[in-house]
Simulated assay, not measured.
Amino acid sequence: MKKINLTPPSLAAFSLLIGLMFAGIAIASDSHDAPAPAATATPASKPKAVSGSADDEMSKALMNKISKGSGDIVIRTGDLPAGTAAAEAKTAEAKPKAAAKMNKSSEKEAADAHGVHWSYIDGPGGPENWGNLSKDNLACLKGKTQSPININVDRAVKAELPPIEFLYRPSSLSIVDNGHTVMVNYGEGSNLIVDGRQYRLVQFHFHKPSEEAINGERTDMVVHLVHQHHDGSLAVVGVLMSTKNSPVARKFWFGDEPAKGNPLIQTLWNNIPLVKNKTEMPGVMIDVNQMLPSDRSYFTYMGSLTTPPCSENVLWFVMKNPISVSEDQVKNFDRIYPMNARPLQPKGDRLIKETKGN
């Protein structure tokens, strides 16, 4: 037998040749694992363990495609071992599912909040939940000087209060049913002056029954006249409306004469738009002075808006004497808004002042 001497260069070449032979065997093989000795073949019924990362398995599948000469090289999940495909699918789905699970509650709450609008009816949008509908409404829930309140006459401080100067002038009617009440946007040039501060009349709107209570009793309706100072602060005048004549308006000792309708109220009701949230300007002139009582004595306190966002630091003036409206006028508003008054809020330690001697 002839002895072969392998020099280092020959040995390197021989090693490369052996490596290529085994590489050819690996490429030709249809298995993703290293070939096993013939004597210890793995039974077909026993599933093969998947080893290595998903990238290793993808490389082996690619080599298998090349060895078969299958044309365009496209790796599909079907080309990968079952364990690898499942593992990759599980990994791909894990993050979205986890994120969806984490955000499920917050998304539901957001959807509920955006889908529910505030109202006066008990439920998700009711007064007890106004503060939960938006972060802008937190004052409705956590405010300490909220309106409306019950005015206990016996607990009000009698004081020499400055008279309210109502410098109102006629305005062209601009009226809208905003889905919560009937509101009139008033023209510029009408102002209220009290204690040296001037507020411009911006708009007025109605509630049924009156939101304010006097000694625990609410009247049939109330009109809120909303004013704004040039610094942005607000002053609201509440004029109570009643179908019962005041004692000074009674003409017969044996009974009450039915209250007459208010002419301005009738003009407004005649021009309520047929479509909600659509402002109508019918070319009619109105004078808000027609909704002021002849006796201008009042209660005053610090409170808030009575609708969301329930902003506080609002200066309130509640006229002590109501104006008269007819039952038909109240019934007509009732046909649109049977009840649009916020529940009474805690008075707390707030001070209520009352015009002295009235």
Rank of each mutant, 00 (worst) to 15 (best):
N321G: 01
A13E: 13
P96W: 03
E88M: 15
N271A: 05
A94L: 10
A28D: 10
P322C: 03
T77Q: 09
P263D: 07
H224D: 07
V226C: 00
K353V: 01
Y337M: 06
A235F: 02
M302D: 08
L264R: 02
G131H: 08
H230S: 08
L6C: 09
V157R: 14
G78I: 06
V318A: 10
S210L: 01
N277Q: 11
I164F: 06
A44K: 12
K320P: 03
K142T: 15
I214Y: 04
E128P: 00
E327M: 10
I73M: 14
G71I: 05
I175F: 04
G131R: 04
F204Q: 01
A44I: 11
S106R: 10
S233A: 07
K90F: 08
G187L: 00
E165N: 12
V202R: 05
H205T: 00
V314L: 08
K244M: 09
V239Y: 03
S105K: 14
D328Y: 07
S10P: 00
T77P: 00
A85C: 07
S29H: 05
K68Y: 02
A159P: 05
D295C: 02
P338L: 04
V182I: 13
H229Q: 07
S106N: 02
I323F: 09
K60D: 07
T91Q: 12
I286M: 07
A259D: 02
S45H: 14
